[in-house]
Write a protein that binds this DNA or RNA. Structure first.
Lengths: 328, 328
DNA sequence: TTGAAAGCGCTACCAG
DNA sequence: CTGGTAGCGCTTTCAA
């Protein structure tokens, strides 16, 4: 492997000058620059980012911690993060935490042995102090960890209220809310939004809790729907959950949206693929991921951080699991 | 950050001895070991993997190159790779190539600046020589690059034949094959398998080509189905494509599986979520990813490689988009 | 069984 | 504007 020394020799300059050229800091004469460029081309020199990291005590690796990349929500985020990172010359390390605090902790520990430049975390089950205490730039994506930590998230309460109201406007009367795991902030907030909307109408909806696992969810939903056949509107705390509901509706031969309307939350691509396509409260996932990456990189590079919290509004995406807004 | 020198000082030993202890090579007396352990605990010392990489010219980073992590096929692979890597102490860098040779090349170049320990690649659009020439352990996953490169893949021809035959056995007579992009080995092989099955029956099926993009595929399928309403069996080159077909079937109000049967290929989780659930030729994605990672790590660590090519058989997974095997 | 010291490739300070 | 050189933290001879 050719190194900076070889380049220096070839260009008849010192290592220091070449380094200065490479980092575009300090003075290098036009002539020297040309000689260096020439040498680099000739030798096909590639700087070692490891060596650079060691001496700068700073790498260009970003850790992305997600609960499970198989959950269709996260690849969309991951893709955006990766795109952004790539364009800034960073590289992203993928970490699956399985929502386990312990595994996440281990990851953080391992990553910090590598001088990770920063962390993007889509989790909040953990004590905020852990994140605050690690001495690495960090941004929370999707889930808020602490007000002190830069965050990109969606206003879940507001979005849920929006979706629920739409269901109500469309004539649904017996609502069911399928909520995600207890204690998960996003799920809690979405429930709050749902309840706000139903409360306003003086309704008394059913609420069931489930994990995000498709099969678990399907089971819970099936039981609930059997028990409460009058349900004609479902607000699900995620698109996956909504799709599970749709699946069960088919199984129970309930017509969607005629007999049962469903609204999801997230806006994953999958929602367009099912039949009928899913009406949902959609977030701009790509935008979120990209924003988080940008925010992190700005932090890493010590730039003025314009905005430390980005709270996005979700939009209603009307597709096929709700009736056309009828009597209004 | 506490370093090896601090530990050595604290343990009243030399840096060399501590290093030997850390790497479990060379002699270290029982007593010294204990002192070192003690010091490590006391100081909460974490070795710097960057420094280690620099001096060993070897990192613990594995690059995983996929076309697009948003394609639901890849997260399942990625998850397995990551799990395996994690358990061996490696870290995986996620790279999206978008099926673009150029981007892939850039990635490989960038990764090689980091002493990546190895590469797992799910692509084959590129000239094999590129992979052979980079001086890094590599394994091809899902798509075969070259016989000389260790590979984990599925027997696509055989699987496709299996799926098509099943369609035929179940009474489908007018077959349509939705094949993936031309020139993509996996797609080509699956077409071959499909044709073998139809040829045996002296059939003359329709074949259409599409990209893996859902919307593109849906459009192509819709046109085809309008043009050839007699089609009563579809073999799709991937589950995503099959789901697109299912979507269009609903749109055109064709009953599945009564009027139209569909068989996919891949076995992604998504297949179970749609309604009716997708009958498919399934691969054990997790196993594939895990095997690829293991194979790579064995290569990296210079272990005897038991097996350099793993060719798995796909299994028929009968679900709801085909009729129950009737007259047989 | 241990330690001194020479790198690994690059950055950054200081002197010229 | 340029070069010498001391690290960055760790591994690995080579001697002792």
């Amino acid at each position: 492997m050719v190194n900076i020394k070889d380049v220096a020799k070839n260009a008849n300059l010192s290592v220091a000058t070449v380094s200065r050229y490479l980092n575009k800091n300090g003075y290098v004469s036009k002539k020297s620059s040309e000689r260096i460029e020439q040498a680099i081309r000739e030798l096909d020199y590639k700087p070692s980012s490891i060596a650079r990291s060691l001496s700068k005590k700073q790498s260009n690796i970003i850790g992305l911690i997600v609960p499970d990349i198989k959950n269709p929500y996260f690849p969309e985020l991951a893709r955006a993060v990766e795109d952004m990172a790539w364009s800034y010359g960073y590289t992203v390390v993928l970490c699956n935490s399985d929502e386990q605090t312990e595994k996440e902790l281990l990851y953080i520990e391992r990553l910090s042995q590598t001088y990770v430049a920063g962390l993007i975390v889509t989790t909040s089950l953990m004590d905020p102090s852990v994140y605050m205490s690690i001495n690495t730039p960090i941004v929370a994506l999707d889930r808020i960890i602490d007000v002190a930590i830069p965050t990109v998230a969606t206003d879940n309460r507001k979005g849920a209220k929006l979706g629920t109201k739409y269901l109500l406007t469309n004539g649904a009367e017996n609502l069911l809310c399928i909520r995600g795991p207890q204690g998960l902030k996003t799920a809690d907030d979405r429930l709050t939004g749902f309840l706000e909307a139903t409360d306003e109408q003086g309704l008394d909806p059913i609420v069931v809790t489930t994990s995000f696992d498709f099969k678990d969810a399907a089971k819970v939903i099936e039981q609930t729907l059997m028990l409460h056949p009058q349900v004609d509107g479902i607000f699900a705390s995620s698109d996956t959950l909504a799709i599970a509901a749709l699946h069960i509706a088919h199984k129970l031969e309930k017509r969607v949206p005629e007999e049962l309307q469903i609204v999801g939350f997230d806006g994953i691509a999958l929602g367009e693929m099912v039949s009928p396509a899913l009406t949902t409260v959609g977030q701009d996932l790509y935008k979120m991921g990209a924003a988080a990456a940008t925010m992190l990189i700005e932090q890493i590079e010590g730039k003025e951080i314009k905005q430390t919290v980005l709270n996005l509004d979700a939009q209603l995406i009307v597709r096929g699991t709700t009736r056309k807004e009828a009597a209004k």
